[in-house]
């Protein structure tokens, strides 16, 4: 099993989150009627258990010497290590932007933009140096994104009668 420094970091993030949940659970009412458990019992017990198990997991990782070891990425892979990280961050950011603009821009426009940018980001980052980006392909992608978003909008809003956000121009 490959463990890395980021494994330790993820343990710490989870530990911080569990600690925060535990601290918040202390504000919940701790009294219960009839010998039953209080509303605070489960949140406290669970977050405390998470903290303990994470600490045990970290100690075991440290003893085994795996928790802080370096990432063993595939050195034969031609793609630089930062490319997938950048792609991941770009797609994650795009998802947040899609959620942010879904209602203000309406479903059709925001979805068309999302599809276009999502494919474009992956294409550009996987683009081989020396290969030219063909304008026809860009145009085809734009047309595909627009057509898919309109088709899906019609299928869901007309076919399934699902309310999707619109900007009120020509019904989309």
């Amino acid at each position: 099993m490959v463990k890395t420094r980021s494994d330790a970091l993820f343990h710490l993030v989870l530990l911080a989150l569990a600690g925060w949940f535990l601290q918040q659970a202390w504000h919940l009412p701790a009294n219960a009627a009839g010998g039953s458990l209080s509303p605070a019992f489960f949140p406290r017990a669970i977050s405390l258990s998470i903290v303990i198990l994470l600490l045990v997991s970290m100690v075991r990782g440290l003893i085994a010497g795996t928790l802080l070891s370096r990432d063993t990425s595939d050195s034969e892979n031609a793609t630089p290590v930062w490319v997938p990280v950048l792609a991941w961050c770009a797609i994650a950011l795009l998802l947040v932007l899609y959620a942010l603009f879904l209602e203000p821009l309406g479903y059709v426009v925001s979805t068309a933009l999302f599809l276009f940018l999502c494919v474009a980001i992956v294409s550009v980052l996987s683009h081989q140096r020396g290969d030219a980006i063909k304008p026809v392909r860009v145009l085809m992608l734009a047309l595909f994104s627009a057509a898919v978003s309109v088709a899906i909008f019609l299928i869901f809003s007309v076919g399934f009668e699902i309310v999707l956000p619109t900007i009120g121009v020509m019904g989309v």
Binding site: Y98, A99, F114, L115, C118
Partner: peptide
């Protein structure tokens, strides 16, 4: 990948 993400959005929002 792009199409799956699009369906995730519509599924949850709907």
């Amino acid at each position: 990948m792009a199409l799956i993400l699009m369906f995730c959005f519509i599924g949850v929002y709907a």
